[in-house]
Each structure stands twice: as structure tokens, then as C-alpha cells.
């Protein structure tokens, strides 16, 4: 008796395009536009026709917007726009660098812990708990005091502090997935642990990690801003949005834009990363595609 299912009808083919277009509204694209703008500005800062961010023009301090200085000058006569652009660079370097450290080390540890379980897992989770117990600000202070303030040190310490969070996300995702039948199927085929981790688990764990990564970028940008505001971040005269806000504090009555402009820039950047991260997560959730 003929029982074989015939070839898939066209309805499966046609069903595909409709679902992708759902969430990419104007807000999403605005966020993407801002992110692109910031990235381009930061990468090409050197070749843009900007005045130097460190040249002080003491006769022209806290100047209003003008043709020479599009966004005016700060308390030491340095061009505000140039400082904003170079500040973007710092924010992005630290903002991307630190979570990259977090996601690679934390993600790897989390996946291994969630897959192998047992004593290894206990060790990893335990050490992460210890790391989390350190007050982060004190740790950052101690490191910078001991090793000196620099972009590299800052990125490393912030990255390290982010490892436990990424470990948790990766481990949670791996725990759920490792018990599902497709992983057991791979084991039944005789796949090695490495193969299972890389080809079966990683593509699935990557999504929540990626979404968390983008949120992490947002958090680190703010963290770097806070540290620089306190004078513990990147050392002067390197421009950073956080230190600019700190310096702008003194001029709030005379030239409020010195504090607000970097704050707005930070706000927009953090918001964009959050929006894109959220949308990406919702979009790539495979269950959404089922209906």
C-alpha cells in the first residue's frame, strides 16, 4: 500500500518569507544607523577633518558652537566634537573588548561546566561565585592602583568581572540543551565531545550569548563611563565620555553642553546596543519560526 509521504507541497516553500520581516521596524533601523555612525566615526577618527582632541586653546575655553569648533570647546579649550569622536573610540574599544573577554572565557567555561557536570562544574561555579563576591569597584581600584591606569588594564579588569555572568548564561543554556535528544543522538553516533560541543551545542548556545553580549557592551560602556567620571578609568588627556562628563560638571552653569553632549552620546549608544540586542534575540529564536 502506498504510504510514503509525497514530496513536500509548495506551501512549505511559500511559508518561509513571511516570517522574517516581522520586527525590523523604524526604531530598530534608527538604532542600527546610530551604531554604524558611531563605529565609522570612531574607526576613521584619524582621517576625519577634526581638530586634535588634545590641543588646548586657552584663549577659547568653553566656547559656544562656531564654525571653527562645531560643538564648541571644553574647559581647557579642546575641541568638543573631536573629543566626542575620540571618546567614542574609547567607549567602543573598552565596550567591545571587555565583553569579548567575558564571552570567550565565560562562555567556554559555562559550556564545559554544563556539558561535563560533576566536579568540574562544581569547581567552575564555585570559582565564579568567589569572583562575584569581590566588590567590583574595589577590585578595579586595586588593579589600577597596582598596574597603573591604561586602556588595556581597564579592558582586562572589566572583562574579567564580566566572566561569571557569561558563564551563567552559557551554562544555563547548555544544561537545557545537553539533555535534548539531538545531543544524545550525536553521542549515539559516536561523535567526540569536541564535536558535540562545537557543532551541536555551540550554535544553539551562541544565540543567548550573543544577545547577552550586546547587553554587556551597553553595561560596560556605562561602567567605563562611571570609572572615568571618577577619574579611575582611562588616564587624561585621553578623551572618554565619562571623563568628559566629569570635567563638564564644573561648567554646568556656564556651558552645560559640556556635560550633556557626552551623556547624550553615551545614552544613544547604550540604547542602540540594547535595542539591537533585544531584537536579535527575538528574531533568531527558532521557536518563533514554528508558527
Amino acid at each position: 500500500m502506498a504510504t510514503l509521504d509525497l514530496a513536500l507541497e509548495e506551501e512549505v516553500v511559500a511559508a518561509l518569507p513571511a516570517r522574517r520581516k516581522r520586527r525590523l521596524g523604524p526604531v530598530f533601523w534608527a538604532a542600527i544607523a546610530w551604531m554604524v555612525f558611531i563605529f565609522v566615526a570612531a574607526i576613521f577618527a584619524d582621517v576625519l577633518p577634526l581638530p586634535s582632541p588634545t590641543d588646548m586653546d586657552m584663549l577659547n575655553r568653553r566656547a559656544p558652537f562656531s564654525a571653527l569648533h562645531w560643538l564648541g570647546t571644553d574647559g581647557l579649550g579642546r575641541d568638543e566634537l573631536a573629543r566626542l569622536v575620540y571618546g567614542a573610540r574609547i567607549s567602543l574599544i573598552v565596550g567591545l573588548g571587555a565583553p569579548v573577554i567575558g564571552v570567550t572565557i565565560g562562555g567556554a567555561l559555562g559550556m564545559l561546566a554544563g556539558y561535563f557536570r560533576g566536579r568540574f562544574e562544581t569547581l567552575v561555579v564555585g570559582s565564579m561565585d568567589v569572583l562575584l563576591a569581590f566588590p567590583p569597584l574595589i577590585l578595579a581600584l586595586a588593579v589600577t592602583a597596582y598596574l597603573g591606569q591604561s586602556i588595556l588594564n581597564l579592558t582586562c579588569i572589566l572583562g574579567m568581572l564580566g566572566i561569571p555572568a557569561f558563564m551563567r548564561v552559557a551554562r544555563a543554556a547548555t544544561l537545557t540543551l545537553a539533555r535534548r535528544e539531538f545531543v544524545i543522538a550525536a553521542q549515539a553516533l559516536g561523535a567526540s565531545h569536541a564535536r558535540i560541543l562545537l557543532r551541536e551545542l555551540l550554535p544553539n548556545v551562541m544565540l543567548p550569548l550573543l544577545a547577552f553580549f550586546l547587553l554587556g557592551v551597553a553595561v560596560i560602556i556605562v561602567a567605563e563611563g562611571a570609572l572615568s567620571f571618577l577619574g579611575l578609568g582611562v588616564p587624561p588627556p585621553i578623551a572618554s565620555w565619562g571623563s568628559m562628563i566629569g570635567e563638564g560638571r564644573e561648567s554646568l552653569d556656564v556651558a552645560p553642553q559640556l556635560a550633556f553632549l557626552p551623556a547624550i552620546a553615551m545614552f544613544l549608544t547604550v540604547l542602540s546596543f540594547n535595542l539591537v540586542g533585544d531584537t536579535l534575540r527575538a528574531l533568531t529564536d527558532p521557536r518563533q519560526g514554528a508558527l
Binding site: F182, I184, A185, E200, N204
Partner: peptide, 24 residues
């Protein structure tokens, strides 16, 4: 040796959708 043996013995599961990696 065990891996070689696995090629001769296979397994089919109850939940067909969970048996397939959703991202491959």
C-alpha cells in the same frame, strides 16, 4: 572500537523535533 561499533547500531527517539538540532 566502541565508535566503530556505533555505526552498526542506531537509535531513533520519541520526540522527532527535539532529536534534530534546531540550528542545523
Amino acid at each position: 572500537a566502541l565508535r566503530k561499533m556505533r555505526r552498526r547500531v542506531q537509535l531513533i527517539f520519541q520526540d522527532p523535533i527535539a532529536s534534530l538540532n534546531p540550528r542545523r
